[in-house]
């Protein structure tokens, strides 16, 4: 490989890693709270790839772009209502919504703040991260887990830009471990339920997009890290 080709490959890799950091950040934002007017405008003005090679991602993009094509004055309210319906629901049975917390899916009695939360909290702390005071939910909320992966992706980019490939590989390995042990285990269960509870194509689309992106990213990390 010539130096020029290596540089091009490195630039492409940096671009790909930046792209995955941005996608994790956007997904995190969409799960963290309801869509606001500024974000809705930006989402409406965005382009959504038709064919990415992952059918789940393609379906997610199609559903979201279709929903946004019906935008009107009440869209923000509709989305806010659907966000509440999907992630909060009503009643106390523990079965009334697609609860966005890992502990719910990983504890026998579907409880919040269980071992899974303690584990991810330890990982965040080990990575030097601490939540803002404004975040009042458990640390195993999917928005935080996605944001954590966005942070690790940014660090990998930073390391690559500094030509520190060992550090970049370590961050990617941490991302892979986190996906393997946490997010990829329970996010598919969450998204199946999101598809059932959601009444808008936006949140149905978000479920598909999440599945597709996590699947693609897991494979990408396996390729980059040479994991069989």
């Amino acid at each position: 490989m010539t130096e020029k080709t290596e540089n091009a490959t490195s630039a492409e890799m940096i671009e790909a890693l930046k792209q995955r950091a941005a996608t994790y950040a956007l997904l995190s934002r969409l799960y963290a709270k309801e869509v606001d007017a500024t974000l809705l405008d930006e989402l409406h003005d965005s382009l959504y790839p038709v064919s990415t090679g992952n059918p789940q991602t393609d379906e997610g993009n199609r559903l979201i772009a279709t929903y946004l094509s019906g935008i009107w004055e009440n869209t923000l309210t509709e989305l806010a209502a659907d966000y509440m319906r999907v992630f909060f629901g009503h009643g106390y049975s523990g079965h009334a919504a697609a609860y966005p917390f890992e502990s719910v899916y990983a504890s026998e009695k579907r409880l919040l703040m269980q071992d899974a939360r303690d584990e991810v909290l330890a990982l965040y702390r080990a990575a030097g991260l601490s939540k803002r005071d404004s975040w009042k939910e458990g640390e195993d909320h999917i928005a935080l887990e996605l944001e954590y992966l966005a942070v690790l992706a940014d660090r990998a980019v930073e390391a690559l830009c500094a030509a520190d490939t060992d550090a970049a590989a370590a961050w990617l390995r941490s991302s892979y471990n986190f996906l393997d042990e946490h997010l990829s285990n329970w996010a598919p269960l969450l998204t199946v339920e999101m598809e059932k509870f959601a009444k808008t194509d936006f949140y149905r689309g978000l479920a598909f997009l999440t599945d597709g992106f996590l699947e693609t990213d897991f494979e990408l990390l396996e390729d980059m890290l040479g994991i069989e």
């Binding site: 950040a25 003005d45 991260l129 803002r132 390391a159 941490s174």
Partner: peptide, 28 residues
């Protein structure tokens, strides 16, 4: 083309003290 800078994320950036340097112990 979405401006991610407008998002108010949950992790406190001021506490992101992990310095890129020695990757040996950093695999989480």
């Amino acid at each position: 083309n979405i401006d991610l800078g407008q998002f108010d994320f949950s992790f406190d950036p001021a506490l992101d003290t992990w310095a890129v340097g020695d990757p040996a112990d950093r695999e989480l």
